[in-house]
Amino acid sequence: MRRWSWSRVWLHVLAVLLALWVIVPIYLIAVAAFSPRDVIYKYPKPLFPTQVSLETMLFFIRSSGVLDSVRRSIVVALLTLAVSMAVGAPAGYALARYVFPGRDTFRIAIVSTRAFPIVILSIPLAVSFINLGLYDSVISVALMHTALALPFTILVTSSVFASVPVDLEEAAMTLGCSRLGAFWRISLPLTLPGLAAAAIFTFVLSWNEVFAAAILTLRNRTLPAHVLSVLNESPLPFRFAGGFFLLVPALIFMLFIRRYLFNLWGRVVR
């Protein structure tokens, strides 16, 4: 094995320190969430999970309104995922595959929506939704979240589709496929993992979003909106367990999509 130079050593020290900076807070909230309730009020706190217990987590989950809001959050996230893929993926495909007048304009328009604080638009939308009778429903939140996710979905799916060479579809067309058939048999199977990663990210985006959800709902809150609205009146165990609960999907989903990180973000921005 090659002898490690000092710069290699320092590189690894720095790498580990930066990783600890990210991981340690997650570790601490996990320790807190799986401590019994009386330990949570204790001071000084144990830094290691001495007494692992589900008591705190169960307390959170059984608190009134939590389970319903979890269910709503999942429904909203799935709706967002479905609508933004159904609406955005065709546009992504068009941007990736066709050369047509207005293509660049559309692309720039989509990219520049990122310069707008889209969630803030939930305030005027809430007023409209009240008039339409959609206010305080999962649909209203899903519609807003889709608007939030759509530019992202369009750009990501377009880069995912662009990663499949046009030649492959054209080859299929010379071998007897229609354009739709070529998409179905060639592009779709090849882009499925990338599209799934985009979908997962959309799901996380919606699961995490709190401002618009809190504005657009009153009684039918999503999980983050519910936690936010009761946060400052809640006991510590509720807060810690809630924080950890909100964080879990993030950790799991990141594991799934880490291979596509740069497809999702790296290429979107260039």
Partner: peptide, 16 residues
């Protein structure tokens, strides 16, 4: 590890 917070909501981060 570095990318994990990408999927963490501001609310969860605040609580952490």
């Amino acid at each position: 590890f570095y990318a994990v917070p990408l999927a963490i909501s501001d609310l969860a981060a605040g609580i952490v």
